[in-house]
Nucleic acid binder design. Structure first.
Lengths: 147, 147
DNA sequence: CTAAAACCTCAAGTTAACCTGAGGTAAAGT
DNA sequence: ACTTTACCTCAGGTTAACTTGAGGTTTTAG
């Protein structure tokens, strides 16, 4: 039987393009896990690479670490997430991403018709009187209504 | 000749849906301007409403305050920005917004084909091996290459 | 076997975009 | 006139997502 390879923190960091401190940080936040060797150094399953990749992908879409953690928590706990598990997250975030894209498209179109025209009339302008999704949530990534 | 109405800070805040402290903050950052009355209280031209609206619109698109300030600085300094001035900004941000939308679409499609399929193979997966625009800039709003 | 490279922990610093509170003045309502 | 509401300044706090540094241990390469 072949033994699974194990990864040291520096190697994971290099492979994923993040700093070692980031991995410490993610671990502290409960986003990834490791065990220790004799000398108290972190060791990882190769699986962690996928987890980190998913984290980074989600971040690119504006998902916060808390939201990511929450999403992870919906995955079955005591086994390696399967293809189907990832597909679930993928679907979730895909939809959120679509919503975000649509909101940005709306904003773009408002811009075109509104700032572009120079009007910005106090009572009718959609930019003065924002009631769209994004504005009601303030700036920043508040896309997934995950709680 | 009719005199221009002037606005006190609380009224501006209420009208724009921001806190008074935000207006102080924007002023300190050089994003908006005011003068003082006898009693040292801030007074604003109605024009400030448009400025704040533009700030908020830009923020929704992921433009940082620094970038917004820079964009404002390209407007003619000693007169009220005209319709054409705003149109210029609008155009700039419209384009940036389009780029951002496209990047998100790419990401969405990668997600569909990649996490969705559960593969994430180390050497060929676009999520493991990110070389797209967004990833090279890290998370967050680094869309306008404004400097 | 030794020296460099990689790790460890823990505290503190960083940036953006604000918010909160204290202590005090000005303006507005009645 | 009086009292409430609005404003003022200035210092310090907040959150997210990390990074940096100090001081010390383990691994690894030669």
């Amino acid at each position: 039987m072949e033994q699974e390879p194990t990864w040291a923190v520096g190697r994971v960091a290099k492979r994923c393009g993040v700093k070692v401190s980031t991995l410490h940080f993610y671990e502290e936040k409960g986003l990834i896990r490791s065990w220790r060797n004799q000398g108290n150094q972190r060791r990882y399953k190769p699986e962690v690479l996928r987890r980190i990749s998913v984290i980074k992908a989600a971040q690119k879409m504006g998902v916060s670490l808390d939201e990511i953690k929450h999403a992870f928590s919906t995955l079955p706990n005591n086994r390696t997430p399967t293809k189907e598990d990832w597909q679930h997250l993928s679907q979730l975030w895909h939809d959120a991403l679509n919503r975000k894209i649509h909101q940005l498209e709306n904003l773009r179109d408002s811009l075109t018709g509104c700032i572009g025209c120079g009007c910005l009339s106090l009572n009718s302008c959609p930019i003065y009187n924002p009631d769209d999704e994004l504005s009601s949530q303030g700036p920043g990534p508040v896309i997934l209504d995950s709680k």
